[in-house]
Design a protein around this nucleic acid. Structure first.
Length: 475
DNA sequence: TTTTGAGTTGTTCGA
DNA sequence: GTCGAACAACTCAAA
């Protein structure tokens, strides 16, 4: 028995020091604390971290390590199977306890269960703490028992029964006794987190890490959250929270976001924003009850849907060369900064699945590779929703018109001009549909369709009719 | 137990 | 230009 008990804290999607129940409990226990992050390619569900998430993780982990470094601690980074890695660290340091916050992604949850078993068999104590989810997916159920398939009743029930905990205070890390010798830690290359991005824009837009996350949360809740309900659909404005990558890596917990948003003056903006936080809950609710939906449609009849095999068109969608400016702007924003405005995500998803009738899974996989906020629950629900085969699906005839969506949500064209600069000199009235412009207008803007910018890959009206036919066939 | 009604991030058409 | 209606299908809760 050691008089100064040593505790290992296993970090995963909770890269923060505030509201971290496992870390706070470890510090409270007294004795040295060893923070550990383990990068593991295969967590069992086939969705290994994509490039965008790895780009973010590398920087977020460095920021967390900096915070620990300021008080003489060190974040141990390792690659491999968590059970053996944690046992090895405990063995080499004499730690007797491993703590972590409960996991929310089904495969991570199951893996954590087997890791606990593995550690227990080796006489290590395991303590699990509150996960980064506000509701218990098994506890929130419909009146007749069972999971929800529609958001609004889920939201009503959530408000009735879920008591959101207050965030846990940040522990005083300075009181943690120093460890004389730290276990070995892997470099970024060994960890698989050295990612080269195609452009520098991503570096200018994002500052990963908990300090920047807290700062953004404050800016958002002090400021434009009050206009969130009106501004969130405007990709040309900074109307959204941009907190999604923070929640993905756990630089912020949903409890912190909830508390900060609920504290602001009550109003339509913050109410609408709280609903978005609960959309994340709903997506985890669905993934918990239907884990197979990351690859299979929730609605069975969509198994017969005749998706088109069209690699060239998929490629043009990915590169932002469809000839529909709002779609191309979104796809290029994604490629360049690893993030896309939510409204535009819906537009490009509708375009891929309905106009091009390409399987939503191709879209989900592309987003998964590129997004810095790629979250399996949100990505799955979003794509199935857009394709019409998921929960709370829009009626199948609700097919976004990429021109009218662009005109409505990017009325001045600032968003398109920013991401599709070859169209920047077109006047507003044809910016979202360049093929409608007179030849003099195109000449004046120095745009030659088919050369500088593609003609539309499909005619939306015809594509819409064909999609409706197919949806009618399977109904 | 059965019925009813509200809800659902849109588009198009015609008055 | 603006407006309401039509476009189907399903979930869920309340009557």
């Amino acid at each position: 028995m050691s008089s100064t008990p040593l505790t290992v804290v296993w970090f995963e999607s909770d890269l923060r020091t505030h509201d971290n129940p496992a870390l706070t409990a470890a510090v409270k226990r007294g004795g040295p604390v060893i923070p550990v992050y383990i990068q593991d390619e295969d967590i069992g569900d086939g969705w290994a971290d994509g490039k965008g998430v790895r780009w973010w993780l590398r920087r977020s982990l460095a920021a967390l390590d900096d915070q620990f470094g300021e008080v003489g601690l060190k974040l141990i980074r390792r690659r491999g199977q968590p059970g053996p890695v944690l046992a090895d660290i405990a063995d080499s340091t004499g730690a007797d306890t491993v703590r972590w916050n409960g996991r929310v992604r089904p495969a991570r949850r199951e893996r954590a269960d087997s890791v606990a078993e593995y550690l227990n068999e080796r006489d290590l104590e395991v303590q699990r703490h509150t996960p980064d989810l506000l509701h218990d997916p098994d506890a929130v159920e419909t009146t007749s028992g069972g999971p929800y398939h529609v958001y609004t009743p889920f939201w009503n029930k959530f408000r009735d029964v879920v008591q959101v905990d207050d965030p846990v205070p940040r522990p005083d890390l300075e009181e943690v006794p120093a460890l004389s010798e730290w276990p070995r830690s892997h470099g970024w290359d060994e960890l698989g987190l050295s990612v080269t991005w195609d452009t520098d824009d991503i570096e200018d837009v994002w500052t990963p890490g908990e300090p920047a996350a807290l700062s953004r949360l404050k800016t958002f809740t002090d400021g434009h959250i009050s206009a969130y309900d009106r501004a969130r659909d405007r990709p040309d404005q900074d109307g959204t929270s941009r907190l999604s990558p923070r929640l993905r890596t756990g630089e912020l917990s949903p409890r912190q976001v909830w508390a900060a948003a609920a504290e602001t003056m009550p109003g339509d903006g913050s109410e609408t924003y709280l609903q978005e936080i609960v959309w994340r809950e709903f997506s985890y609710h669905l993934l918990h009850h239907y884990p197979e939906t990351t690859r299979e449609p929730l609605r069975d009849k969509f198994r017969d849907f005749d998706w088109r095999d069209a690699p060239d068109e998929l490629n043009r969608w990915q590169r932002g060369q469809t000839g529909y400016p709002i779609v191309d702007a979104g796809m290029r924003q994604l490629a360049q900064i690893g993030w896309m405005h939510n409204r535009v995500r819906m537009i490009v998803a509708s375009f891929l699945t309905k106009d091009l009738r390409i399987h939503w899974l191709h879209g989900a996989e592309w987003f998964w590779q590129k997004l810095v906020d790629a979250d399996l629950a949100n990505n799955t629900m979003g794509w199935q929703w857009a394709a019409g085969c998921g929960a709370d699906a829009q009626p199948f005839f609700r097919i976004f018109n990429p021109v009218s969506q662009g005109e409505r949500h990017d009325p001045n064209g600032d968003y398109v001009r920013r991401w599709v600069p070859e169209l920047a000199d077109l006047p507003d009235d044809v910016l979202h549909a360049p093929w409608r412009a007179d030849s003099q207008v195109l000449d004046a803007a120095e745009v030659t369709l088919g050369e500088d910018y593609p003609r539309p890959i499909v005619d939306h009206s015809e594509a819409r009719d064909r999609a409706l036919e197919e949806y009618n066939r399977i109904k």
